[in-house]
Nucleic acid binder design. Structure first.
Length: 709
DNA sequence: GGTTGCTCATTAGC
DNA sequence: CGCTAATGAGCAAC
């Protein structure tokens, strides 16, 4: 791996001659098997099923399922059957402020359930309309007394399961005290991964890959939140990514687990990842650490190792001009403890790359890119490459290092190259083609939002005024108890038991330090005007405006749409829905049907459906309707999809007696740059004029309902 | 804000 | 089948 050399010598594209002390070409062979598919016919491993390149929005050929990323309607049945929401620690029946030690798994109880306090009648927080019913989502968590332990959280689906906390690794610190096992089992049941069979374990598809990645990241975020909320840093695992992956692996929840050459079913060129473990789980690149993945194949009589994939870990701004070429360094050569260097040996991955040069087989390439926000890395699947030449050179320490030149197989979808283009648009070294207005917000947002049309001659959408926030003519509701806010002068911190806002979110913060929604709650209490914390408090995420570089663009067949130049992580905040509040309580639906830019929270919405009782599921989730027609922000351009990559969440901000609800949009899964952002518009209930105003849905998903409102 | 140190999980290969 | 060596990311503390 190039990084193992402690040198960035290969990040300068064409070889930096000044650094190369002794370059001697080894060979540059014509491939032995010009037609790689024939050449590989003797490989002992079964060939992968043919790769089908499917755009995210379809259309989907038969056999290719789009990944419906959140929850299927049937899932809500689970919760309904139990007569209790399956909330897994974040659902509808929000635990009230939980003492930190409540996360401890009871050891003295035979069934693992601590004395569950009896439910007390909930009080309605907002006296705002019959639609609220008895739903938990309308309950002020401060008034709730259901103090579930984490065991309770999942026991609706795992009543008979083993209660003993598995002792894992060097556990024993307080960090292991909540029952991870139950948490995982809850997720697996919810996403129907309990009956995961060997076929799906071996052969992925879009749906399977998507579900596994979704579960991975939801679980990872949940574990991060739980560990962080304890406010203890010593003695606990600080790598929730590793822990999550290991949990899933142990349960056999993985796919494409047999190595193969070429594309991996269910993964598209351009897909992005944020952890090496994600690559591992979906079969894109098996080793958890090593940069070269290889397998032994039978060639005529004997076997030889061939490379199947590599992960390069360069920065994308110094990779040279040609984004279709990689100069990759071999692995090894460095003594880990003291960092001492030795010559690399032609073995393992290095040998496999060398052999792959001869055999000319496809090698998958995952580009590691430094994440601008945070210290992490983003992994972009850049499709398959072929190794064109190899050589050895000496590094600074005078040790031999193998170098491999990989060239991208032509005809694949744009992936890494788009990142470089975007970087150039941002730093001004290139102009985004088709730009009509560089910033349609006229400076209202802190980042410009370009208006782009590169498909036809339309010059822009109808006129509207750009506003960055929701405009209320009256508060969403009144709270009987004045809320004076929290006193976190330096911003709300996890594990601070004195933070009033944390208490209102069940004792934990809703957002991570990098602005990710920790869990799929159905309501977030953000800090309000009367809180003492600064504007950059992490509990004010949706108030801080758009932080990603968006553009409004003309779609091929769905009018204007929204997409991002920046990659968006699962759970990442995108924007709120700004506009004029049309309705906050029951009453006649105001001019909604002739407004293409309506946001209607009263609609049936499947992710929320999960945490609802089936009898109540048809009720309007939240009595809020917003029009973005005359005044609005980027959110008004987000199109509907039945397989969305974005969903919304109501966010409450309180000011003395007044409560204001805002609508915040978050990414469901990782969204690569330039992929259209869509959410499920939901279904209009008959009492709100459903069946009227149906529009033909063009989302192209095979889960498409055929229409939307 | 760069650097350093620590630890982790997976798998090839014995 | 069980064990071990090889591999580098991610995070936190400096």
């Amino acid at each position: 791996m190039e990084q193992g050399l402690g040198s960035d010598s290969n990040h300068h594209g064409p070889i930096d001659k000044s650094r190369v002390l002794d370059v001697k070409p080894l060979r540059c062979l014509v491939p032995v098997f010009p037609n790689s598919s024939q050449g590989m016919s003797s490989i002992s491993t079964p060939q992968p099923s043919p790769f089908v390149c499917v755009p995210p929005s379809g259309p989907f050929p038969s056999g290719v399922q789009p990944f419906y990323p959140f929850l299927s309607p049937n899932d809500s049945q689970n919760g309904a059957q139990q007569n209790q929401p399956a909330n897994f620690g974040f659902g509808g029946s929000i635990p009230a402020p939980v003492p930190l030690n409540s996360f401890r798994t009871p050891t003295s109880h035979a069934n693992g359930v601590t004395g569950r306090p009896k439910r007390v009648p909930k009080t309605r927080a907002f006296g705002s309309g019959s639609a609220a019913g008895d739903d938990d989502v309308y309950s002020d968590s401060q008034n709730q007394s259901d103090q579930y332990t984490s065991a309770d959280m999942a026991d609706t689906t795992n009543s008979g399961k083993q209660r003993g906390r598995p002792k894992r690794g060097r556990s024993g610190g307080p960090g292991e005290d909540f029952d991870v096992e139950l948490l995982v089992n809850g997720f697996l049941t919810l996403f129907k991964l309990k009956e995961f069979d060997d076929f799906r374990r071996t052969n992925g598809d879009k749906d399977t890959v998507g579900t596994i990645l979704l579960v991975f990241d939801m679980l990872r975020r949940r574990l991060t939140q739980l560990e962080e909320s304890k406010g203890v840093t010593a003695g606990i695992a600080r790598r929730p990514d590793l822990k999550t992956c290991n949990l899933l692996m142990t349960k056999g929840v993985r796919t494409n687990n047999t190595k193969r050459f070429g594309h991996v079913p269910g993964i598209e060129v351009g897909d992005i990842f944020f952890f090496r473990m994600e690559l591992c789980l979906v079969g894109l690149h098996a080793p958890s650490m090593a940069g070269i993945d290889y397998m032994s194949v039978k060639v005529t009589m004997d076997e030889e190792p061939l490379a199947v994939s590599i992960v390069s870990s360069g920065g994308y701004d110094d990779d040279g001009n040609d984004s279709d070429v990689i100069i990759y360094s071999g692995q090894g050569g460095v003594q880990r403890r003291d960092g001492q260097m030795f010559d690399q040996k032609l073995e393992r991955g290095n040998l496999a790359l060398e052999k792959s040069l001869h055999r000319a087989n496809d090698v998958r390439v995952v580009r590691g890119i430094k994440d601008i926000v945070g210290n992490g890395k983003i992994y972009v699947y850049d499709g398959v490459y072929k190794i064109q030449e190899s050589w050895a050179e000496k590094n600074k320490s005078g040790c031999n290092v193998f170098k491999y030149k990989l060239v991208r197989v032509p005809g694949q979808a744009e992936a890494f190259s788009i990142w470089k283009s975007i970087q150039q648009w941002k730093d001004g070294t290139a102009t985004r083609p088709g730009v009509i207005i560089p910033d349609l917000t006229s400076g209202v947002e802190s980042l410009p939002v370009a208006l782009v049309n590169d498909v036809d001659g339309e010059k822009g959408p109808a006129h509207f005024t750009y506003v960055s926030a929701l405009r209320y003519s009256q508060p969403f509701s009144n709270n009987n108890k004045p809320f004076s806010g929290c006193h976190c002068l330096g911003g709300c911190q996890p594990g601070d038991t004195n933070c009033l806002c944390s208490h209102r979110n069940d004792g934990v913060l809703s957002y991570s330090s990098v602005g990710l929604l920790y869990t799929s709650k159905n309501l977030v209490h953000e800090c309000g005007p009367t809180c003492s914390c600064p504007p950059n408090c992490r509990n004010r995420l949706s108030q801080s405006g758009v932080k990603i570089r968006l553009e409004v663009f003309k779609t091929k067949n769905r009018g204007w749409g929204l997409r991002s130049w920046d990659p968006i992580r699962a759970g990442g905040f995108i924007c709120e829905f700004a506009g004029d509040v049309v309705k906050v309580t029951d009453g006649d639906f105001v001019n909604a049907n002739d407004d293409d830019y309506i946001f209607d929270a009263t609609r049936y919405y499947e992710p929320l459906e999960l945490v609802r009782d089936s009898n109540k599921s048809k009720k309007a989730p939240f009595p809020l309707v917003v029009s973005g027609k005359n005044n609005g922000n980027v959110a008004r351009f987000m199109n509907h999809s039945c397989s969305p990559n974005v969903y919304w969440l109501p966010v409450l901000r309180e000011s003395n007696n007044d409560v204001f609800m805002h609508i915040a949009f978050f990414a469901i899964r990782h969204v690569p740059p330039m992929q259209e952002l869509t959410y499920d518009y939901g279904i209009v209930m008959p009492e709100n004029g459903g069946d009227g105003g149906k529009k033909k849905c063009l989302c192209g998903s095979d889960k498409c309902r055929g229409y939307y409102y």
